[in-house]
Design a binder for these strands. Structure first.
Lengths: 141, 141
DNA sequence: ATGTATGCAAAACATTTGCACCTGG
DNA sequence: CCAGGTGCAAATGTTTTGCATACAT
């Protein structure tokens, strides 16, 4: 039912768009950079251009289907937007990303914004580090 | 006393390094991108190369003198490291940046990391939005 | 058909690197 | 003097854009 999401976003249902949406929805790694997606599609035998991947991701972001993050590393990563905000733990050794949500932090953010007369439109919080035991949290991400 | 900071970091005290450190310490905007610094130095009549600015900033970062942030926008911004961690409010209309620190959030971050068996080496939290009244908070940043 | 999307190649940026020359200690 | 630093130009990596062709509706 990805195609309905595309239509809802006012985007024509094309092969590249469906393939990219499918990858974002079904890849074991929810956080992908443009080139990852490009290579995965090439490997899957698709005839796609990297420029198209960037164009589609940018359109998806504008349509709210996808969120663009700027983790360290000089490139953006894209993640399917499931409608629920969350923040990230990023393992700088393995690159593994785990999502989390904390109500207390969200509340404090709002409070801090209010104290500063600031209206938040979005926010990111990234904890960089490493998992002490990389076997435990495995189910997450 | 910037030169002592340089020596302490094991870096020769050279003109470009002192000029850049000086800019970072005295610019009204604490958060500068490499090209900002480069242009400011050119305007000040310095004969410096953009490559040098990048090299120096990278060395400063390695030495802990400076922190590199990846706000939205496809470029890094650098900030003098005053030793105290803080997070950022970024006005997406004016580009104005205000720093803040919240003990409750810091505590929750540690707790969340612990719950995930994760060791934090660093973290960033950025609230994007806009100041409701841009006259009020002016003293900050 | 017809406006939009795509592929390809080139361009635009941000950042890094090789190398000959210069400079600080 | 001499290791390390700098300027310049070229290289790299990421993302964007122009344009002719191909495709969805």
């Amino acid at each position: 039912m990805e195609s309905s999401d595309l239509k809802k976003a006012g985007l024509k249902v094309t092969l590249p768009r469906m393939k990219i949406l499918d990858l974002l929805a079904n890849s074991p790694d929810r956080h992908l950079k443009a080139e990852d997606i490009y290579k995965m599609l090439l490997d899957a035998g698709e005839d796609i251009a990297l420029a198209t991947v960037y164009r589609v991701l940018t359109q998806f972001e504008a349509a709210g289907l996808v969120t663009r993050h700027h983790f360290d590393g000089g490139h953006a990563v894209f993640e399917l937007n499931d409608g629920e905000h969350h923040d990230h733990l990023v393992d700088i050794r393995s690159g593994r990303v785990v999502e989390f949500y904390d109500e207390i932090i969200e509340q404090r953010q709002k409070e801090i914004a209010r104290e500063h007369g600031f209206t938040i439109t979005e926010h990111t919080m990234i904890l960089y580090g490493h998992f002490d035991d990389d076997k435990e949290d495995a189910g997450r991400d």
